[in-house]
Amino acid sequence: MLEIKNLMAKVEGKNILKGINLRVKPGEVHAIMGPNGSGKSTLASVLVGRSAYEITGGEVLFEGKDLLALKAEERARAGVFLAFQYPVEIPGVNCTYFLKMALNEIRKSRGLEPLDAVDFLALMKEKMKYLELSESLLSRAVNEGFSGGEKKRNEVFQMAILDPKLAILDETDSGLDIDALKVVAEGVNRLKRPDNAQIVITHYQRLLDYIVPDFVHVLYNGRIVKSGGKDLALELEERGYDWIISAVSEAAPN
């Protein structure tokens, strides 16, 4: 489904991604971990087409097509979704309205009829239940005045409505209390199907207790320096990153 080959990117003249290789097949869940500033969010941003990042090398195929050639909105319509680490507020634009516009734009690109208000509300009600999201929240402006946790929940709610093929969750667990974490994780799990995939960026093993990854990757200094199964996350929780980092530095001083 997703194939990243030797991807390199820079921002403001600084090289951030220095050759990323990653393959994600349908039905898989990949976790990406790594110290602060290692390039996790940058990778996510590059995949969804944020223009501040300049691609300096490599390629990305999504369902066999050149993902990097598409505009940000085209990638979204093709089924790539990012739950943002820091969702922005859009004052004056109602949450429900926003989501209906987005969904219908995506449906249009797939040759589907737009959902009318009645059908859309029904869909919303159904998805709202899973995420224990209140109706009053959705009648407010997008993320405006939402608490940190509410913003994160809203991201996953949008994911539930838009039903992407590839969802990238950037630290969706940060800012959530224990109960909310469970709710959100269950919400994410419910969306998992054999024909879609998830990339979960996180610092904490805790999340991976609920969203169980098939693969765990450690991103350090713009490269994936170690990959493993879900046990790798447990090991990281115990030992931190130092042992991996020192191994890397010895192998290839930077």
């Binding site: 087409g49 944020r50 940000a72 943002f84 922005v88 987005a102 734009e105 995506i106 838009l162």
Partner: peptide, 9 residues
């Protein structure tokens, strides 16, 4: 960009 990422031009 947030809007773009949700499919809106």
């Amino acid at each position: 960009f947030y809007c773009n990422q949700r499919g809106l031009p």
